[in-house]
Design a protein around this nucleic acid. Structure first.
Length: 271
DNA sequence: AAATTCTCCTGAAGGC
DNA sequence: TGCCTTCAGGAGAATT
């Protein structure tokens, strides 16, 4: 599922092809994604140079003078760079047709989104209240510590709260907590500055490693048409319940937090 | 204000 | 073989 590193990789993959290019036509086959695709986009997004592309959290932004397209990949969304006229498959919901290629959005579960705003996208309701970017300098232990004050919620839910820090999804939350040796259920307010320092370092480390891994798959994305493969990052805990901890050999335990499966090492991550 | 629950959707996997 | 059930999960919306 596309988390921050995947979205970053998609961004880097399409920038060389898309930047300063114009979309000539938009084909929408399925407009009801997470939200209905606004009809204005089919006119206003056309023939406008896309002068910049950015990522904010897991959102991808395509800027033109008339407005900005906001893409989200939900759980199962992806983009492909394809030759024009490539026949669509079942879950190919929309195409951006450029002069020389087609950028196609595919999303079996339809949790993704395509929105359009004429205003500053950072002020859009979906983006306005997002928290810190985890790979930027403002994401610090002191910041988390301050946010965690009086928060009883478990630390895993805390770092997955996008109003605090963006882009830390279920997989990377579990992996970062393992690296930081913190129990996912630990009440946020009970952690001290040292814990948060470890946590910040671990989150940055896990995300950077995944982006680096994504870079190796980027070549395929650019040269041959298609999508970037998902990362074969070495996972310590996610999806490894019942297996031995890489660190100490203890049987990894799975619990459910807010309907999200959470795997951790009961020994390395004791409360 | 903070925490919890519900919801969207469909493919994969498991049970019988 | 095939049908049915369960699960996975990002994140906004609704509810407590």
């Amino acid at each position: 599922m596309p988390e921050l590193p995947e979205v970053e990789t998609i961004l880097r993959g399409i920038v060389p092809r898309v930047k300063n290019q114009c979309i000539r036509r938009i084909i929408i086959r399925q407009k009801s994604l997470r939200w209905v695709i606004p009809s204005a986009i089919t006119e206003e997004f056309i023939n406008q140079p896309i002068y910049d592309l950015k990522r904010r959290g897991k959102y991808l932004l395509l800027f033109t003078q008339k407005g900005t397209a906001i893409l989200h990949f939900g759980m199962s969304g992806s983009l492909s760079l394809l030759p024009k006229q490539t026949p669509p498959n079942k879950h190919d919901h929309f195409d951006f047709i450029f002069d020389d290629f087609c950028l196609r959005f595919t999303d079996p579960r339809r949790f993704g989104a395509l929105l359009w705003t004429r205003d500053d996208p950072m002020g859009h309701p979906l983006l306005a209240h997002l928290g810190k970017e985890p790979l930027e300098p403002g994401f610090t232990a002191a910041y988390l510590y301050k946010c965690a004050k009086n928060r009883k919620i478990g630390i895993k839910q805390f770092i997955m709260n996008s109003t605090i820090v963006v882009g830390v999804g279920n997989i990377y939350a579990a992996e970062a907590l393992f690296l930081a040796k913190i129990n996912p259920l630990k009440p946020s307010q009970a952690l001290d500055l040292t814990h948060f320092e470890q946590l910040v370092v671990s989150i940055k480390k896990v995300l950077k490693a995944a982006i680096k891994q994504g870079g190796t798959t980027l070549r395929d994305f650019l040269n041959s048409a298609g999508k970037p493969g998902y990362f074969k990052l070495k996972l310590n805990v996610y999806g490894r319940e019942g297996l031995a901890c890489n660190q100490c050999g203890t049987c990894l335990k799975k619990i459910v937090i807010q309907n999200r499966s959470t795997v951790y090492c009961p020994y390395c991550q004791a409360l």
